[in-house]
Amino acid sequence: MITAVTTFKLPKPITREEARSIFLSTAPIYRGIEGLFRKTYVLSEDGLTAGGIYFWSSRVEAEALYTDAWRARAREKYGADPIVTYFESPVVVDNLAQQIVADD
Results as ranks from 00 to 15, higher is better:
30 Y>V: 07
17 E>I: 06
95 N>K: 12
46 D>Y: 01
34 E>Y: 12
16 R>D: 06
51 G>F: 00
87 F>Y: 15
31 R>V: 10
5 V>C: 09
59 R>G: 08
37 F>W: 13
78 Y>H: 11
75 R>I: 09
52 G>V: 04
23 F>N: 06
97 A>R: 15
86 Y>K: 02
33 I>C: 05
87 F>I: 08
47 G>N: 01
72 A>F: 05
61 E>P: 00
48 L>F: 08
2 I>D: 00
59 R>M: 14
13 P>W: 00
44 S>Q: 05
68 D>R: 11
55 F>Y: 15
39 K>L: 15
78 Y>N: 04
98 Q>H: 12
49 T>S: 03
101 V>K: 14
72 A>N: 08
67 T>D: 05
43 L>S: 02
47 G>S: 02
43 L>I: 06
4 A>R: 01
8 F>W: 07
46 D>I: 02
77 K>M: 15
56 W>I: 04
7 T>Q: 11
66 Y>A: 05
20 R>F: 12
92 V>M: 14
69 A>C: 02
27 A>Y: 11
98 Q>R: 14
84 V>D: 03
23 F>G: 04
91 V>T: 15
63 E>Q: 09
33 I>S: 03
15 T>V: 05
68 D>N: 10
43 L>P: 01
95 N>T: 15
5 V>D: 04
70 W>L: 03
78 Y>M: 10
89 S>T: 15
61 E>C: 06
32 G>Q: 09
99 Q>L: 12
24 L>I: 13
95 N>W: 12
62 A>G: 03
83 I>A: 13
82 P>Y: 02
4 A>V: 08
12 K>M: 10
68 D>V: 09
92 V>S: 11
52 G>F: 03
56 W>P: 00
63 E>A: 02
31 R>P: 06
90 P>A: 08
67 T>A: 01
16 R>K: 13
60 V>E: 15
61 E>R: 11
